[in-house]
Design a protein around this nucleic acid. Sequence first.
DNA 1: CAACCGATGACAACCGATTGCCAAACGATT
DNA 2: AATCGTTTGGCAATCGGTTGTCATCGGTTG
Lengths: 340, 340
Amino acid sequence: MAMQAAGTDRPATIHDIAAICGVAASTVSRALSTPDRVNIRTRARIEAAAAELNYTPNSQAKALSSGRTGAVGVLVPDITNPFYFDLIRGTQLQLKAAGYTQLLVDTEESDEVEASTMEQLRKSADGIIVAASRLSDESLLASAAKIPMVTINRDVAGVPAVVIDTPSATTQALDHLISLGHTRIAYMAGPLTSQSSTLRWTALAAAAEDRGVEVRRLGPFAPKTQSGAAAADAAVHSGVTACIAFNDLIAIGMLQRLRERGIRVPADMSVVGCDDIFGADFCNPPLTTMASPIEQAGRVAVSMLLAQLNPLAGGGSRSRSLMPTHLTVRGSTGAAPVAL
Amino acid sequence: MAMQAAGTDRPATIHDIAAICGVAASTVSRALSTPDRVNIRTRARIEAAAAELNYTPNSQAKALSSGRTGAVGVLVPDITNPFYFDLIRGTQLQLKAAGYTQLLVDTEESDEVEASTMEQLRKSADGIIVAASRLSDESLLASAAKIPMVTINRDVAGVPAVVIDTPSATTQALDHLISLGHTRIAYMAGPLTSQSSTLRWTALAAAAEDRGVEVRRLGPFAPKTQSGAAAADAAVHSGVTACIAFNDLIAIGMLQRLRERGIRVPADMSVVGCDDIFGADFCNPPLTTMASPIEQAGRVAVSMLLAQLNPLAGGGSRSRSLMPTHLTVRGSTGAAPVAL
DNA sequence: CAACCGATGACAACCGATTGCCAAACGATT
DNA sequence: AATCGTTTGGCAATCGGTTGTCATCGGTTG
């Protein structure tokens, strides 16, 4: 709102302010960061000058001397996977609200890129949030020892985590399919290094055994729509009447392939996805899927990380947060075809 | 590959290396950044020590003293818009290849957030890439004077830009619709502050006049699928038989709404989108849309920015880059309904 | 043999902030 | 008026590098 004089070309520093107010630079620093340490009158002068000069602290310098960078790294395996859209937005919003900057990195589904990124971030970030890590438990633990970390969808003892409870949703999905009369069901697995995929399969297999139906595991398939073609063919070939895919990308890809092959969904084959990503509601047919509060998961992860960074007296920070999920039924699931 | 001794808890600095090699810290700095300035033998010793200590330079310190941060800000209006995901991936890949870090910021379609972010980035980034800026020409120019900048889909004299040539694609879309017999066509406009939307409309209106068909402008509509409902209703109400939407999100939203209302696509209404985002190929019906090389646009933007940052003798950097587009015809367009 | 030269490496200032420590100033108490 | 405690603000070191300047050294040239 202040009438801003044409700024000099160089951003103002605390020294500029100090010169104007006739105080030492350290006093300016104190006035701005430890207001109680300085007389209220000088503080007012300094604040006025700061506003006048449109002063903003240099984050590099601040980072160098204080040791904290005000940045948080967010690592995702594949930035073009819509699942991460909402996650990233969640982290971004929450980080910005807390005055932090988000360093987004696409690790390209590679454990090496992930590891080297972490090493680099160790100096340029105060903490990191790692979604769907492809690293081994040991590597993850080792990294977590060096820099505050929160994982998402990756549960390792000793590392705070936000876990989206898709495993329990698979049970809902299974019951949904069973209620529709399906008895031969397949699980289209995700990457072998994905803990989520493993957990979903474990939960699903247990529930299947419990209910006395057959669920076979097919794959692994890369979490991309392109893999859906192979997944669809594998499902058809295996003779199942319904499948639960590791995620929506694979499921959507399957839908496309099944359509190409003239296999009707859900009349001939039911498909269940996971995550309820962008597109799950408008694909053809709309996808029955396990919906997760993804953006919220991102926010929670940030909160947990910040709690770790600024251990306030108030709240002991949780080290684990389980996000509830539920099955969203749409058009891709239906009654099992009548046996011939 | 080196047998890494258990690292000390604190990352190594050039002083550590200097101590080991018995040289001054400045020599270490030169050996690493200006290899020619130092004897090849000492350089070798220093490099060996650096490798041994697993040394990585502290980016904050480097930034502070050298004035360059090694980071580039990427501003997008809405991080959850799939259009930007390919863009972000393009910038991310190219930046990483050049050794830069990407600072991704979602400006929430707000000019204020955009402006304040730029001001902040001015100190913590070497340059910025602004996609679909919502700022005025003046503000943009003013900011570009303070920090190297490349815009995407925003053409302002004096600011290097990557422009995806969707306006000319609208002509293709129009001809496509005309060839199908449509004569009453609508353009579903995007945000008023979106230059892309304006340019598309201008090109479309000109082409329409040239061809003697009627194209009316409806909207504006927010670039989200939710806005598609209003857009669909507006289109139906206006009595057109085909529409060209500002982008795929609106188009996909329209598809959903039209389906709800029992209006068949393309039998009763043809719909053309723009961008060919994730989902355009598997919505129902698949969307005819103007495809853009989005990821490539991101890469080009980065290249242009880096050329600006490191003005090599070799190539004069282009200040404008036009990315070609083409119409991808799918199922959402068809022959005009027979007039009653 | 003296003058000269390029290569090499050390010194020190600096980037912009933070922070421990100390001293001046001030008011209050006895 | 002397003492004491508390504010308040300055000095200077520090973070980890970069870079301008200068001294030194070995070798070459006239």
